[in-house]
Amino acid sequence: MRAATIRAHGGPEVVEVGEVPEPRPGPGQVAVDVRAAALNHLDLWVRRGWPGLHVSFPHVLGSDVAGVVAEVGPGVDAPRPGDAVVLSPGIGCGRCPRCLAGEENLCRRYTIIGEHVAGGQAERIVVPARNALPKPPALSFEEAAAVPLTFLTAWHALAGRARVRTGETVLVHAAGSGVGVAAVQIAKLLGARVIATAGSDAKLEKARALGADELVNYETTDFVHEVRRLTDRRGVEVVLEHVGKKTWEGSILAAALGGRIVTVGATTGWDPVTDLRHVFYRQLSILGSTMGSAAELALVLRFVVEGKLRPVVDRVLPLAAVRDAQALLADRAQFGKIVLTP
Rank of each mutant, 00 (worst) to 15 (best):
I6S: 09
I6M: 05
L284W: 04
L297E: 05
F57I: 04
F141C: 05
L139Y: 10
V312S: 11
L61M: 09
V236C: 13
V238T: 06
I286M: 10
G73T: 02
E142P: 07
V312Q: 14
A330K: 09
A320I: 02
L44I: 12
G73E: 03
S251A: 07
G167P: 08
D275H: 06
A138W: 05
H9C: 08
T263D: 08
R208T: 10
S293Y: 03
G211H: 09
V60L: 00
T166I: 01
D83M: 10
L317F: 12
T221P: 00
V32L: 06
L44D: 12
A207C: 04
A333L: 04
G102P: 01
V339Q: 09
G10N: 05
A192Q: 03
V55G: 05
A254L: 10
E249N: 10
V17A: 05
G211D: 13
T247V: 05
L53H: 08
E237P: 04
G250A: 08
R80K: 15
D271W: 06
S140M: 00
A254F: 12
H242D: 04
W155H: 00
T247D: 07
W155C: 02
P21N: 10
K206T: 10
T231E: 12
H278G: 15
H9T: 09
E16H: 14
K245V: 04
L171M: 00
G292T: 03
K246H: 03
W155K: 02
L61T: 11
C99K: 14
T268K: 03
G82E: 14
R233D: 15
G258T: 12
G120T: 08
V86F: 04
V262E: 11
A295R: 15
D331P: 06
R234W: 14
